[in-house]
């Protein structure tokens, strides 16, 4: 049998697509968070990191294409399955009692849609600069690296290099309570999405069993909580004024 047919053409295959792309996206989300947490260190870190990523050039594009494809496949498979699932019960029950399905699992479609909306906004905000144009990284004064930025011991960005001031963009962006609040709600829902998704993917790959399902569940809860707290920390710290922005950047956006 043709592998593409058995993966794309079957319900289990499409679920495997959701799980596999889910793994990629979770990997990205975690990496993204860890990278962003460098904001709590000196400005060199996150700005160097941003410059390093841009230097990757074609590799960055490969990563972006993989991520974009994952998002599209994830959404495509989920949409097709959802439509099929609706069609599988055309006449609804008059009374339906849920026995044990978790709230997270029942909200997947809605959390998924909100996360998608957030994702689009997030890209528009920090990657493309369509919103909050004034504080977009390319509109801020460049940042001069104080020291070297090294990745795994290799020199990535030399001291004295002028790079985009990602740090200030983030801080200025999150200084707006509405933006921060939306961000916090969205990552909250994303964490909630993962509360089912990260657990569920083990089932879909066939790695889950009663023997360790309890441990897996705890692991997933801890993971989702940490992920949420990590994401909460950045706008939270900005709102509480714990991360000061560079004066040059602030001056640039002062009306």
């Amino acid at each position: 049998m043709n592998l593409a047919v058995s993966i794309f053409g079957s319900t289990i295959g499409r679920k495997i697509i959701i799980a596999a792309t889910g793994v990629i996206l979770i990997g990205f989300a975690v990496g993204h968070l860890v990278g962003n947490l460098q904001i709590f260190e000196e400005a060199d870190r996150i700005n160097g990191y941003g410059a390093f990523l841009h230097q990757l050039g074609p590799l960055l594009w490969v990563a972006r294409i993989v991520l974009l494809a994952s998002v599209i496949l994830h959404i495509w498979a989920a949409t097709v399955l959802t439509l099929e699932n609706h069609a599988a019960r055309q006449i609804k029950y008059g009374v339906k009692h849920t026995i044990q399905a978790t709230l997270a699992s029942r909200m997947m479609r809605w959390t998924g849609v909100v996360v998608l909306a957030f994702l689009l906004y997030h890209l528009a905000h920090f990657t493309l600069g369509f919103t909050q144009v004034a504080t977009y990284k390319e509109n801020l004064p460049l940042y001069t690296m104080v020291g070297d930025y090294r990745v795994a011991g290799f020199l990535a960005v030399k001291s004295g290099t002028q790079v985009l001031d990602v740090r200030s963009m983030v801080i200025l962006g999150f200084s707006q309570p509405v933006v921060s609040l939306f961000y916090i709600v969205a990552v909250g829902l994303l964490s909630f999405h993962l509360l089912h998704g990260a657990d569920s993917l083990f089932q879909t790959f066939g790695w889950r069993s009663q023997k360790w399902a309890g441990a897996l569940r705890k692991l997933v809860i801890v993971f989702c909580a940490l992920y949420f707290l990590g994401n909460l920390a950045i706008p939270g710290a900005v709102l509480l004024g714990k991360i000061p922005v560079a004066e040059s950047a602030r001056a640039a956006v002062r009306p």
């Binding site: 679920k15 399955l81 699992s105 089912h196």
Partner: peptide, 14 residues
Amino acid sequence: MDALGFGSCTNQYE
């Protein structure tokens, strides 16, 4: 199973 019009599993274990 797919051809008969059953839905798919969303791992809720109902």
